[in-house]
Simulated scan of single mutants.
Amino acid sequence: MTAFAFSTVANILSEPGVTQRLGDIIAERFPGTRRPFIVTDAGFLRTGLLTLPTLSLEQAGMLPAHFSGVIADPPEAVVLDAVDSARRHEADLVIGFGGGSSMDVAKLVAVLAGSAQAIGEIYGIGKVSGKRLPLVQVPTTAGTGSEVTNIAIVTTGATTKTGVVAPQLYADLAVLDAALTLGLPPPVTAATGIDAMVHAIEAYTSKHKKNPLSDALAREALSLLGRNLLPACEQGDRLKVRQAMLLGACLAGQAFSNAPVAAVHALAYPIGGIFHVPHGLSNSLVLPHVLRFNLPQAAHLYAELAGVIVPHASGSEEARAEALIVAMQQTAKMTGIETSLRQVGITENDLDRLANDAMLQTRLLGNNPRELSRDDARAIYAAAL
């Protein structure tokens, strides 16, 4: 067996409605906390779902503050604004409430609020020095898995994204409360759910760092997500289904944090960066076409995953791998989300720019089971039109 290392968050708490007791949980696990700092976005703040968690913190004798300026694909300026707000509040603990963008900003606030490091000094892998503020992550979508990853993505130019990867970005506690996800509309549920499935598929087939623990987590994640995605879209008020989706996304996050994602994400990033397509939908649009490109190198692994998603699939490895790809296409179609690049405003004239940008994602492309050239990237985008 190949040697491997596996890292993840210290604690996970999975229970519907648990954030209504957030104050007691923080007081018990982080004694002495007085000034928690909540990072979220304006949309989630407007739902009113933060009212009870905030009240719980106050009843536990704390003085919470909110930063609700997070936007999708957060730029540096938003991160720095949040860091300044946390410093002014004299925050002694950070809580991320939201999707991947809010949780990513929360990670960076926890790292930078008490540090002399500039944000530009921490881009890359292992560049964060020193400690951080205690960090709690509460996902409000079942998708990114950011609550259990050590990665934060920042928009650093007009369309470019840069990652911060460091062990300090692992939270002290991830809290999975499906009650916070009940109001998610079907298109968001679908796109974020497929995003989580992509995390599991890419972790299972990652060229580097794939290991028995990430494999087990990826398979269980796919099982949970595959069984519950359509019910979550069709009957979004079912708490049990929503909790299963949150857990699936969390397990997929643990998998890809250790066995990193690859070409699906590399080709999705330019779609999001240039055309402002949500990340999960960007992944879904290119997923089947990247999987087909990878078949010569990864058919045996895709066949194994077909046993999880389409257990009735039979025949050769290639036939079962194709069944997995078709199942993912059908899943996207049945949820009603867009399934072609044209549907999100992308034309043939955009493909060269997309291909050029995708090739800049060298960190991700290096994990792909099959080497991918610029011409390959363009061909995949063309197939996705």
Results as ranks from 00 to 15, higher is better:
L267P: 10
V277P: 00
H279F: 13
S284C: 15
G272Y: 01
I271W: 04
S284F: 13
L281E: 05
P270H: 09
H289K: 09
N294R: 09
S257Y: 01
A262K: 04
G273P: 01
N294S: 13
H289D: 08
F293G: 05
S257W: 01
A266I: 11
F256I: 11
A266M: 08
P260L: 06
N294A: 11
I274K: 05
N283M: 14
L287S: 07
H265F: 10
L267N: 09
A266H: 07
L287M: 15
F256S: 02
G272W: 01
N258I: 01
N258D: 02
G280I: 11
H279C: 14
Y269A: 06
L287T: 13
V277Y: 00
L287A: 05
Y269F: 10
A266T: 06
R292G: 09
F293E: 05
N283E: 14
S282K: 11
N283G: 15
Y269G: 00
N294V: 11
P288E: 07
I274F: 03
H276Y: 00
L267W: 12
H276C: 02
P288W: 02
S284V: 15
V264C: 13
H279W: 13
S282P: 13
P278Q: 07
S257A: 14
L285Y: 03
L281Q: 02
A266K: 05
G273L: 03
N294P: 10
F293L: 10
P270N: 07
P260H: 10
S257R: 00
L291Y: 06
F256R: 08
P260T: 08
